[in-house]
């Protein structure tokens, strides 16, 4: 097994009555990206705060580059870069001043921090805006600067907590390109996200977290395979027949079956292929259930998430056909 840069073993953390982490274990290998995927309140930020030494765990052990997060907190701070959920940059300082301040606090020399600020501004296409106060920046520019600030100290390990939450789709894709460039450079990265597409696109491995526990882990493909090779989707004409249709279709499925009342949709994990569609059609026709639409598709990570947790990746209250497009709905910048 490759060298683990982040190792988390049985970490627990509770706030007063709320158990935020109930025994989380995971590892991130050198020069790989782990996507920590989960809804609001799953415990992602708590884990990030523990790994970046902002919070002490109640139980368990975690190391970053061999340093213990509790005992060697100071050492960890000099080798990690952290970019938070909201852009933690100074509004009144210019972009350059922000970066130079961070450089100073990493104890770079005056010349080093000046050069480093310049490099980072250039890398994130902020050179022209570098001498303007951050309060004049757009949301995307702020995130870029925030991400840049986390790189000033040339960290061995980068931790990004929901780097694109609250951004519009276009800005999100733009930011992804910057993160992808970091990944290509071989940065070891832990990334938390509520967006399936983000984890799928940026991460080598994905850990699905819900209710303070890792409920599944693997590559995007592995997780998709867990659900079965394909997903059968049937839209019935009459929503009152939805449950009956589900009972018939259960016979074809391998994974869990899901119902969406509002869209009269039944989703079943299956082996796939035309045979399944034909069989499903036959079953339902014989049962006298009319079909509006029927088809087979490759499972998305959203299917995985739903089948693992019983609720959508967003927050559990809604099921959305394609959350890949609906990314801004939980924005809270």
């Amino acid at each position: 097994m490759a060298e683990a840069v982040i190792e988390v073993d049985g970490i627990e953390k509770s706030y007063k009555t709320n158990r935020a982490l109930a025994g989380v274990s995971l590892r991130v290998e050198r020069a790989t990206v782990l996507g920590l995927l989960g809804p609001n309140g799953a415990g992602k930020t708590t884990l990030v705060r523990i790994l970046s030494t902002l919070l002490k765990p109640d139980a368990g052990r975690a190391t970053v580059a061999g340093y213990d997060v509790v005992e060697d907190a100071e050492a960890i701070r000099s080798i990690i870069g952290l970019a938070g959920q909201y852009a933690a940059v100074d509004e009144l300082l210019t972009g350059r001043e922000n970066l130079e301040l961070v450089g100073r606090l990493y104890h770079l020399s005056r010349i080093e921090r000046r050069n480093r600020a310049e490099e980072v501004l250039e890398r994130f296409s902020l050179t022209n805006a570098g001498d303007r106060p951050v309060k004049t920046y757009s949301g995307g520019m702020r995130r870029r600067l925030d991400l840049g600030a986390s790189l000033v100290g040339r960290p061995e390990v980068l931790i990004l907590d929901e780097p694109t939450t609250g951004l519009d789709p276009r800005t999100r894709i733009e930011l992804w390109q910057y993160i992808e460039a970091l990944v290509r450079d071989g940065t070891t990265l832990l990334l938390t996200t509520q967006y399936l597409e983000e984890a799928d696109r940026l991460a080598h491995r994905i850990a699905v977290i819900d209710g303070g526990k890792v409920i599944a882990e693997g590559t995007g493909d592995e997780l998709k395979t867990q659900l079965g090779g394909a997903v059968l989707e049937v839209v019935v004409a009459d929503s009152r027949k939805l449950k009956e249709a589900a009972r018939w279709l259960e016979r074809l499925g391998e994974g869990r079956i899901r119902l969406d009342e509002t869209r009269r949709l039944v989703t079943v994990g299956t082996e796939g292929g035309a045979r399944v569609v034909v069989e499903a059609g036959q079953l339902l026709v014989e049962a006298g259930i009319e079909i509006d639409d029927i088809g087979v598709r490759r499972p998305s990570l959203d299917d995985v998430f739903l089948s693992l947790t019983g609720h959508a990746a967003g927050d559990g209250s809604e099921t959305e056909e394609n959350p890949k497009q609906g990314g801004t709905r939980h924005g809270r910048a």
């Binding site: 902002l54 701070r77 940059v89």
Partner: peptide
């Protein structure tokens, strides 16, 4: 509130 203290606390300062 702005989160910048989090950034400072995660720096080796």
């Amino acid at each position: 509130k702005g989160g910048i203290i989090d950034r400072f606390r995660a720096l080796p300062m």
